[in-house]
Amino acid sequence: MNFILSGSTVSGGITVGYAHLVSTARLEVGHYEVPEEDLENEVARFDEGLRRARDELGALKAHIAPDAPPELEAFLNLHRMILDDSALSRAPRELIRTRRYNAEWALLQQMEKLTERFDEINDQYLRERKADVQQAVERVLKALMGGHALPEPALSQEQRLIVVAHDLSPADMILFKRHHFGGFVTDVGGVTSHTAIVARSLGIPAIVGLHHAYQTISEGELLIVDGVHGVLIVNPDPLVLEEYKSLQSQLGLERKRLKLLKSTPAATLDGTPIELYANIEL
C-alpha cells in the first residue's frame, strides 16, 4: 500500500531508498524506595552510570570521520557539558539520600524539573534544547539499566538506506558513520533541532515532525524523501518513482553547477568586484 506523510523539511534534496527502522524508544523507569543502609551504594551506582555515559560520549569522538562537519563534535561536547552540570550530576544524588529514590527515578525527576523550564521559553531554538537534556539523560538511564547504544545495521553496498526513527540524537547519527544513508526521517523534532542541523551539515535530505512514520512504515519498504517539499512517499507507484528519479537527477546536476561557482570571485557582469558583509551582532 502506498501513502504519503507530510512533515517539516530540514535539509533539502530528494532521495530514494529503503526504510531502515531504528528504535530509540523512551525507557520505562521504575520507582522504588531504597533501604537506608543501601543509600550510599545507590549513590555510587548513579555515579557509575554517569561515568559510563560520559565515557561513551568521549569514545564516540573517535568515530567521527576527519571530513565530518564540526557540529558533530560540538554536539557531543554539549551533551557532556549537560551531564557535568550540577543540576544533573549532583541534584539526583541528594534526591537519593533525602527521599530514598532509586538512581533512575531520581535522575528522571530532576530531568523533568529542568525540561519544564524549557517549555516556558518563547524562543523556538532555545525551547528545543530540551531535547538535548532528554537525550543526555537517556544515555545515563541506559547505562544504569544495562542498556546498549544503537547497533549499527549491516553494511549495504547495493542500496542506500533511509533511517526511520521516532527521534534521533546527533550521537546516534555518529554510530552510523560507515553507512551512506540516503536520508533521515523522524516522528518528532523541529527545524532547529540538533539532528536537523547535523543533517543539513551532511547535506542529507531529512524530514522531521512526521508524527507516525515509525509506527506505519515497515523495514525495507521503498521510500522517497522529498526534502524540498517536506513529503515522504511510501511504496510509490512506478510513475511517481520515475518522476522523482528524474527530479533527483536534475537537482544533482544543479548542485554540481553551483559547486563550480563556489570558488569563482564575485563580480558584476562588467567585472566590478562584489564583497558581501554580514552584521550578526545582537
Rank of each mutant, 00 (worst) to 15 (best):
S169M: 05
E243N: 09
E48R: 09
A143C: 07
T272R: 13
L241C: 11
A65F: 04
F75D: 09
R255L: 12
R97L: 14
P35R: 06
G17V: 09
N279L: 08
D237Y: 11
R80P: 00
E138F: 04
E158L: 10
L150P: 06
Y277H: 13
P170T: 08
P265W: 11
T216N: 08
G252N: 14
H211V: 10
Q109I: 01
P35T: 11
N235F: 00
L161F: 05
I233S: 03
P66A: 01
N2P: 14
R160A: 06
V208N: 02
L251W: 06
V10F: 04
G146P: 09
D270G: 07
G58A: 10
A213H: 08
A74I: 12
L144D: 03
M145G: 10
L282H: 14
G190E: 01
E275W: 01
N102T: 09
E104D: 05
V231F: 03
M81T: 11
R178Q: 11
L5R: 02
E275G: 00
Y101C: 05
D47P: 00
R99W: 05
R97T: 08
L161S: 13
Q135G: 10
T195M: 12
S8P: 00
A267Y: 00
A165G: 03
N41Q: 10
L168C: 07
